[in-house]
């Protein structure tokens, strides 16, 4: 069996499992609905005002920093896999790479983009 076939089987199992978890309650659940049960936040606090509002731009800053470091991980991964063969030069290269990104993080920190007001 090939490498990807195993992943594919895992994917199928991971898809079937939540579907079964939804189907089985549909079959065996007792149905006694009332107004409180049918409300969206049965156990929570009722919403005040509209729920579609503009969110603060700070969320976007976190997101963009997340994207940048996600892409950095992508670059780190092949380097980490071949770490033993690549040697010192690649280590220096990777430090330069991470250093350039650290400048960005330091800039964001300095500008207060990471503090929550």
């Amino acid at each position: 069996m090939s490498y990807f076939a195993k992943i594919f089987i895992l994917l199928i199992a991971a898809t079937i499992f939540p579907i079964m978890a939804m189907i089985v309650p549909l079959i065996i659940q007792p149905r006694q609905p009332n107004k409180e049960k049918n409300s969206q936040y049965e156990c929570g606090v009722d919403t005040v005002g509209r729920n579609i509002i503009r969110y603060r731009i700070s969320y976007f800053l976190y997101a963009i920093i997340f994207v940048v470091f996600d892409v950095e991980t992508i670059f780190l991964f092949p380097w980490a896999v071949k770490f033993n063969d690549l040697g010192l030069f690649a280590l220096v290269e990777m430090f330069i790479f991470a250093g350039i990104l650290a400048i960005g993080l330091a800039y964001a920190w300095k500008k207060g983009a990471l503090t929550w007001k």
């Binding site: 731009i57 700070s58 976007f60 800053l61 963009i64 920093i65 994207v67 940048v68 892409v71 950095e72 670059f75 290269e93 330069i96 790479f97 991470a98 350039i100 990104l101 400048i103 960005g104 993080l105 800039y107 964001a108 500008k111 207060g112 983009a113």
Partner: peptide
């Protein structure tokens, strides 16, 4: 590879400048 890092840095700084 290193230029890619500079590109990511530019994106990050640009986002911070715009958002601030």
């Amino acid at each position: 590879f290193e230029i890619a890092a500079v590109l990511l840095l530019a994106a990050m700084i640009g986002a911070v400048v715009l958002a601030k």
